[in-house]
């Protein structure tokens, strides 16, 4: 392919991805019954924590982050982005069952663009969630010593987390094509959360969960957020967070494209 043809193809695929992301966002907003829980459930948890019911911060070995809300908001963001990813999978399964997905497949677009459109739409939802949750956390007393840069890095990590979750949701939706199965996956979001140091530092997880958390990429993303928010390498590594986030996005998107190709061959 010549350089000109390649540039033209990339521009076309860029327009396709943008159009599909716009559509994903628009439809998600109109299907509020699925999207709202991904904003409300994490906020509810944050509110419970803010009401002072947790004495976790008093535990020996708990890092000093000012307020427990400040520590836990990274887990709240993670919860929201995982739910947003699952919602993206549900929407895709709905497209498959309703036949709209065939319309996308019969258009001259790269299979990867179909996945990336959905992932980009979910990343934007992840950004909106992170902005909302961080704002609420600040309002109820969190103080982030990492400042604006730390907040910006956390929002980027949230976008990566939402993208990876959307890639995973898309993979399952494409493999199963079942809307009802996708709707029953909500409990697994909590399994992923509790096998990562979302609400407690890794040192305070029980030995089994701590072992699992080592191989759960979400661990590095959530710790990366904390390290950025508090500008503290003791809480985690921002670089490890980005590496785990980017790696998860690439892996899940590749799995989704593979699942899509298998679906056409099956």
């Amino acid at each position: 392919m010549s350089t000109f043809a390649l540039e033209r193809d990339l521009a076309t695929q860029g327009r396709v991805i943008t159009a599909l992301a716009e559509r994903a966002l628009r439809v998600q907003l109109r299907r509020a019954q699925f999207l709202l829980p991904s904003f409300l459930l994490p906020l509810l948890l944050l509110a419970v924590i803010a009401s002072g019911t947790s004495a976790a911060q008093q535990l020996p070995g708990f890092p000093s982050t000012g307020s427990y809300v400040g520590f836990v908001v990274s887990g709240t963001i993670m919860q929201g982005t995982l739910l947003a990813g699952l919602t993206a999978g549900i929407a895709l399964a709905g497209d498959i069952e309703g036949g709209f997905f065939d319309r996308l497949l019969s258009a001259p677009v790269h299979r990867a663009s179909i996945v990336l459109g959905r992932v980009l739409g979910t990343a934007l939802i992840g950004i909106a969630q992170a902005v909302l949750f961080l704002t609420v956390a600040i309002v109820i007393g969190a103080d982030f010593s990492g400042g604006a840069v730390g907040i910006a890095l956390t929002i980027l990590l949230a976008a990566l987390s939402a993208s990876a979750a959307a890639g995973l949701g898309a993979t399952i939706a494409l493999r199963t094509g079942s809307l009802s199965l996708m709707q029953n996956l909500f409990p697994f979001v909590f399994v992923l959360l509790f096998t990562a140091p979302a609400f407690f530092p890794r040192a305070l997880l029980n030995p089994v969960l701590e072992t699992i958390s080592v191989v759960n990429p979400l661990s590095y993303v959530v710790e990366g957020m904390r390290a950025a928010l508090f500008n503290s390498p003791a809480l985690g590594s921002v670089w490890a967070g980005f590496a785990a986030g980017i790696g998860s996005v690439i892996l899940t998107c590749c799995l989704a494209v593979w699942a899509m190709r298998s679906r056409v061959r099956a």
């Binding site: 076309t12 327009r15 396709v16 943008t18 159009a19 599909l20 559509r23 628009r26 439809v27 109109r30 299907r31 497209d95 309703g98 036949g99 709209f100 065939d102 319309r103 996308l104 019969s106 258009a107 001259p108 677009v109």
Partner: peptide, 28 residues
């Protein structure tokens, strides 16, 4: 090719105009 499959597989949560514009984008 143009394709209109069985049961008119259209997203019920989009408008006619939005769907046509999306289809245009899908075709570059």
């Amino acid at each position: 090719i143009g394709v209109a499959l069985q049961e008119a597989a259209l997203d019920p949560l989009m408008t006619g105009r939005e769907l046509l514009q999306l289809q245009g984008a899908l075709h570059g």
